[in-house]
Design a protein around this nucleic acid. Structure first.
Lengths: 109, 109
DNA sequence: TTGACATATTCCGATATGGGAATATATTAG
DNA sequence: CTAATATATTCCCATATCGGAATATGTCAA
């Protein structure tokens, strides 16, 4: 067996930084492929390929408008990632608190 | 170029479900490799390899205790993932609200 | 030192990748 | 229909992967 396909789930799809860039850009508003290409400074085929991966795992949705395809984020598909990370939230808050306490103790000297 | 190494960052490391399983298990408490092997039902070499990846990106830390190595989660390393997902939180909350409104309108008929 | 236990590393093979280049498909304008 | 525009797909290749098997390293006990 090799590494899981990027289309396996949102975790794998989002591991690629270019795809996160695209999602960040689409978070602002719906965009055509051409607009993404211009904004990302990537080749058009690369953008189309990344969009395909994102669409297969449900992270984006698309609709045709004339010759253009307009893509938008489906934020719900990001929720599972958020939910998984929040299971560790208590741990890092605890850690941040300890760091803060140490800093206060030092400045109190 | 091929896919980015799993040790590139937390996003890539966490794309592998087995590694998330290990992190979930370690979230409860510090554990030895042997305990992880028993809990995960994975071969020991696989566990060691996954732990190496997790350690390289800072998601876990380890200390030796006799013949054992005890691993623990470094929750701070998960924060960047959480932060990235929260940039979309407003979007899915908005979507959930709309779904709720539609449901209420239906039940109001 | 020797042996037993705990963990890490190496070698292997099948597989999926992402970028580049070329090409195919779809839609509209004329 | 034909040309032009917008997007998608295919082919190629260097690379990193994960699991399995075998082996190496490290630590303790006697």
């Amino acid at each position: 067996m090799a590494r899981a396909a990027t289309t396996t789930d949102a975790f794998n799809a989002v591991a690629e930084p270019r795809r996160r860039d695209i999602l960040n850009y689409l978070a602002l508003q719906e965009r055509s492929v051409g607009e993404i290409v211009d904004a990302m400074e990537m080749e058009q085929p690369s953008v189309s390929k990344h969009l395909k991966v994102l669409r297969e795992v449900g992270l984006v949705e698309a609709r045709r408008e004339g010759r253009q395809m307009l893509y938008r984020v489906n934020a719900m598909a990001i929720r599972p990632l958020w939910e998984w990370t929040t299971t560790f939230e208590r741990m890092w808050r605890h850690q941040l608190l300890k760091v803060k306490e140490i800093a206060e103790k030092k400045s109190g000297l």
